[in-house]
């Protein structure tokens, strides 16, 4: 048994090989996620992974857990329903930057505002990779993409700043170069109650790096190593990303406020007293 890779039981080996390109960073994030699950000693039966659409949206299909591959942008509201109906589940939303911040942007900020007890892992490759490398709300200014052949000019989202303003209780950013730190962050969010958000910068050598003459997967790792600066607690207003500039990584926010279910219960108890009936764990079996 010593030859068995410790993460193997957490993967659907019968679905391999996966669809991702050589040099893609999504697999690295899954390795970190699997190790975080092992390290946190969480009951794997209680973990559910919900993904949207896109390259990162395929994560749900490869993890050996209860897993849901939903519609484009709607992983967060699906996960919200799953968590509220079955509060014992640990619900992970695992998806990409386009899925979560463009088509799903409205749900991202509202789930953070409500402080739904969800753990969101946002794999940010700065582009729409599945469809051929179009511009995303995260694409740095002046980067070339399939739909911005002369360079983008739209200012991008600074995701940590966005979700902090919306109310997230835990916010960190790492790159796929920072596997130990990323694994630690992924274990930490299992201890948090409320809306947690980890942004993982991840290479897309096939579309983003190639078009922007930034080399292959290995070159991107060197880029991440050289450009990253760890600044825990950095004001999120200062962590915006640029095409070739510094990448601020670290744990930016770690705070506590009551989550949606606690607020709901408290309000109903105050208003209804004995007439309030606690939601049963599952209601129709």
């Amino acid at each position: 048994m010593s030859t068995l890779n410790p993460v193997e039981p957490l993967l659907r080996s019968d679905r391999l090989p996966h669809i991702w390109c050589p040099g893609c960073g999504i697999g690295i994030t899954i390795n970190c996620f699997a190790r975080a699950l092992i390290e946190s000693k969480i009951d794997l039966d209680s973990v559910a992974v919900v993904s949207g659409i896109g390259c990162s949206g395929r994560v749900a299909g490869y993890v050996n857990l209860d897993s849901f591959h939903t519609t484009h942008g709607r992983a967060i509201p699906f996960a919200t329903g799953l968590k509220l109906a079955n509060p014992k589940l640990e619900v992970i939303v695992y998806s990409g930057d386009g899925d979560l911040s463009a088509i799903g942007g409205n749900h991202l900020i509202h789930a953070a505002r409500r402080n739904i007890d969800l753990k969101v892992i946002c794999v940010n490759n700065l582009t729409y990779a599945m469809t051929g490398g179009q511009s995303a709300p995260t694409t740095p200014e002046h980067a070339v993409s399939a739909t911005s052949p002369y360079g983008t000019f739209e200012p991008p989202f600074n995701l940590p700043h966005l979700v902090e303003a919306a109310g997230a209780v835990y916010i960190a950013r790492w790159t796929t170069f920072h596997v130990r730190q990323l694994t630690r962050a992924m274990s930490e969010i299992f201890k948090k109650k409320g809306f947690s958000f980890i942004e993982v910068l991840s290479p897309c050598p096939t579309l983003y790096q190639r078009r922007n003459k930034m080399g292959d997967g290995l070159d991107t790792m060197k880029f991440y190593k050289e450009k990253s600066r760890i600044r825990h607690g950095a004001p999120t207003s200062e962590v915006g990303l640029t095409l070739n500039g510094e990448i601020i990584v670290g744990k930016f926010v770690d705070r506590d406020r009551p989550d949606y279910a606690s607020l709901m219960r408290a309000q109903y108890v105050e208003a209804l007293g004995d007439r309030y009936v606690e939601c049963r764990e599952t209601t129709c079996n």
Partner: peptide
């Protein structure tokens, strides 16, 4: 609240029509 269950007002109908499906898979 007096029966035992959840109502949630969502941010739009896109969200309303999928949050309910998450709840169904939650039981």
């Amino acid at each position: 609240p007096s029966v035992g269950g959840t109502f949630i007002q969502m941010e739009d109908e896109l969200a309303a029509s999928i949050v309910l499906q998450g709840a169904v898979w939650g039981g």
